[in-house]
Design a protein around this nucleic acid. Structure first.
Lengths: 218, 218
DNA sequence: ATATTAAGTTAGATCCGTCTAACAAAATAA
DNA sequence: TTATTTTGTTAGACGGATCTAACTTAATAT
């Protein structure tokens, strides 16, 4: 079995691979808050265990085995988030840090029960897809809000950051998954958007925010 | 904060202290599956942190601080067990191993929510008292079934072992907390008891079993 | 009362995951 | 194309939690 430490590497690598397509030591070091030599040595260990393929000075790659393990950890994380929000009534801004710990629990029964009680959900409270039991993810193709145009009618489908601060920001504006919104205006200078929805006739969202909101056509 | 390892020592020591009144290195070694030198060196570390008082060749003692920390961990363990049984419909024979892992999660919100959703329970699914938020335990005085006499009418109040095998044994005989039973007969030779309850007119329980069942008058 | 056994300790080793310092390779800028 | 910066590696150290081997103290049995 994998140590807690190894599990964290796998998870972060998987996220990096799907976000930026590549896993390199420097970025991994940055994201995990560890020095580069630490990363290098762990890559060698993970390579021994056939979880990554490693060659000096080359970008690292998760093997199929590595992807699967990572997927299963992410499944446990997202299932947990859903459970915390849905069944335990904990706010979506608080669940990430808890799930970060719960995801390492070894107990098929525990997570199967969560899955069952939740009715086999396919996305977590932030709109991210929940991998299946084999670790596979069914990707939905959403658009970034920042790539949309004035006049577009959209539905908020997912958020790309689970940091407490960002989610509290959305809470304060009553922006939730499923919220239907319309783009009123885009400020040419800084690409900030004025959008309307529900009780909010004109809310201004900065480029940074719009980059982190995923939407689908309505 | 305490490491996961330290938390495990505290928990086991607390259990030993309440069961046998004393914490000694050999027994701790046995229960934790670690060699004695490992225990000694950890005792010294815990002593540095003022969690135990340690003098060479003497029995070890938890300090008030140590008891409190231990109590809080046990609170988290037992709340979790209750949650798993009550809210997640996991059998009482399966919850111990899961709670063993969940108890180390650092998140007041998480456990407060459990407590709230459960309606502030005072005992866990095995009848053990749940410590309060400061780690204090309100001990109820139950009697061992093996100390009772023929003719006694009793109610099963707690079980003294949370091992899966023992609990499956009880499941198979439909013995649960709250079951009202009457002692029919005690075999003088081996102290095995014949008891009756519910749909079971004459169930024979060995001394070993009766030692692990706590009852209260009915 | 002494011999034997059990309990506890000390010293030193190992493994894991991390670090710093020094160096090497690759990418980028001049 | 050479200099500089960024990225990555090697070597060696360290703290945490464990171990084995050897020793000491305390308990027990004869």
């Amino acid at each position: 079995m994998n140590s807690l430490t190894e599990e964290n590497y796998l998870k972060v690598m998987f996220a990096m691979a799907t976000e930026t397509g590549e896993v390199n030591v420097a970025e991994l070091s940055k994201r995990m808050g560890l020095k580069m030599p630490t990363i290098t040595s762990m890559m060698k260990k993970l390579a021994d265990r056939k979880l990554v393929s490693y060659a000096p000075y080359k970008p690292v790659q998760l093997t199929d085995k590595g992807k699967k393990e990572a997927g299963i950890i992410i499944r446990k994380h997202r299932l947990t988030e859903m459970f915390l929000v849905d069944k335990m009534k904990i706010g979506w801004e608080d669940v990430h840090d808890i799930a970060e710990q719960v995801e390492h629990i070894q107990s098929p029964v525990f997570f199967d029960k969560m899955d069952e009680l939740l009715g086999h959900p396919t996305v977590d409270p932030h709109g991210s897809p929940i991998p299946d039991k084999t670790g596979k993810i069914a990707w939905k193709e959403y658009e970034k809000l920042s790539d949309c145009l004035p006049g577009d009618s959209l539905k908020l489908a997912a958020v790309l950051q689970t940091s407490s601060d960002f989610l509290k920001f959305l809470n304060a504006r009553e922006l939730r998954l499923g919220t239907k919104l319309k783009i009123k205006f885009i400020e040419p200078f800084d690409q900030s958007m004025t959008v309307s929805y529900h009780n909010h006739p004109g809310e201004v969202l900065s480029r940074l925010v719009c980059d982190r909101l995923l939407v689908e056509g309505n």
